[in-house]
Design a protein around this nucleic acid. Structure first.
Lengths: 110, 110
DNA sequence: GATCTATGAATGAACG
DNA sequence: CGTTCATTCATAGATC
């Protein structure tokens, strides 16, 4: 497999300019990565179609290198993306499981 | 591992994106839940009176089940409601802390 | 019926 | 890993 770490022509993409009022935010708030549609599509293919839930560090790096041709991205973004999606799925499973209503938790409704 | 861009073959239908930017992450954003007065009242009782700030998934589900008698509601609505209210409180707290102390802070408490 | 505001929803990042 | 925090986006409702 060829991994072209080609420099994306446009760097940074379309990060909206933070409204910089007189009060400078102490934290560098506006640095959050968001996947481009191409990046998102590929990530979803890997996760759902290829059933890649827990990429190794090597896989993360490889994915990152490939996705860089579609926009700015770092290893940690890939790492967090997989972690978050997995966590969300697990969470939704838990919340959507139907519990028998006969529980004794109705103490909340006193 | 194959990373080539492969079409995800129409996953889940094409929900139209709502943003206007070129690289728009697709976001569903269809009709959203709004709490009924009864639901809102109970949620506020739980949050403020019972000081329930971070309900567990089990609590979320139980709350949801109880609130369903007052109108349509899902687990994630309860989840987001608590998250948002807590976030709003933190945000307001931060704003108060960032007020330049010009000596007239007591105006905030009138 | 255009605009404003409050808030539902989403998710990247990070914590314990 | 499950949970929590942060910021942002989108829009239902209110207001004019």
């Amino acid at each position: 497999m060829e991994l072209q770490a080609q420099q994306p022509t446009e760097e940074g993409g379309s990060i909206q300019a933070a409204r910089s009022s007189a009060n400078t935010p102490i934290r560098p708030t506006n640095n959050r990565w968001t996947p481009t549609p191409d990046q998102l599509r590929i990530l979803q293919v890997l996760y759902y179609d290829k059933v890649l839930k827990c990429p190794t560090p090597e896989q993360i790096q490889e994915i990152c290198l490939n996705l860089q041709q579609y926009g700015q991205i770092e290893d940690k973004n890939v790492f967090f993306w997989f972690q978050n999606l997995k966590a969300l799925e697990r969470q939704k499973l838990k919340e959507f499981q139907n519990v028998p209503v006969g529980g004794s938790l109705d103490l909340l409704w006193c």
